[in-house]
Design a protein around this nucleic acid. Structure first.
Length: 142
DNA sequence: GCCAACGTTGGC
DNA sequence: GCCAACGTTGGC
């Protein structure tokens, strides 16, 4: 079965890609939005996750993978909220800035553009691969 | 720092 | 069930 593609946002001042590189993996918790939560629940182990820095940088900077599927969010006892674990995979060769994504007609309908406040969103394989092309990154799948 | 977008809450 | 008020996110 093919892996799916996702994008998650983080404010670098709260949790950065550089920190994920150090930590190797992180529990993606604290999501309190139903749509984002639904996306977390759909993530499967091994799925690809693009890591976006919101606010200060506004760029996609790295690739992570889902290493643990949805489970009870440890930061709350309310059963409706879930977390997943994601692991660092590789950095993009160059960041892909929001401004450049906006210049790509083929990326005009991704969640990042259409739903500015959504923090966890699916990407088509086409969008994922185009972003990697823009970043000049060769994906290591080994 | 401002503000638009939009999700959530609560009064009715 | 509607909708106004409010809070949060995130681009600019």
């Amino acid at each position: 079965m093919a892996y799916s593609y996702w994008l998650v946002k983080s404010e670098p001042s709260v949790y950065s890609w550089e920190q994920l590189v150090k930590d190797k993996k992180i529990t993606w918790d604290g999501v309190r939005n139903y749509q984002a939560r639904n996306h977390l629940q759909q993530m499967k182990k091994g799925d690809w996750v693009l890591f976006y820095h919101s606010n200060e940088e506004r760029a996609i900077v790295g690739i992570a993978r889902v290493c643990k599927e949805a489970y009870q969010d440890p930061t709350t006892s309310i059963a409706q909220w879930v977390a997943v674990d994601i692991a660092h995979h590789q950095a993009l060769t160059q960041p892909v800035y929001l401004a450049d994504i906006k210049k790509q007609p083929a990326l005009s309908d991704i969640g990042l553009i259409k739903q500015g406040r959504l923090s966890v969103m699916p990407l088509t394989d086409h969008a994922f691969k185009l972003i990697l092309t823009l970043s000049k990154t060769l994906l290591h799948t080994a």
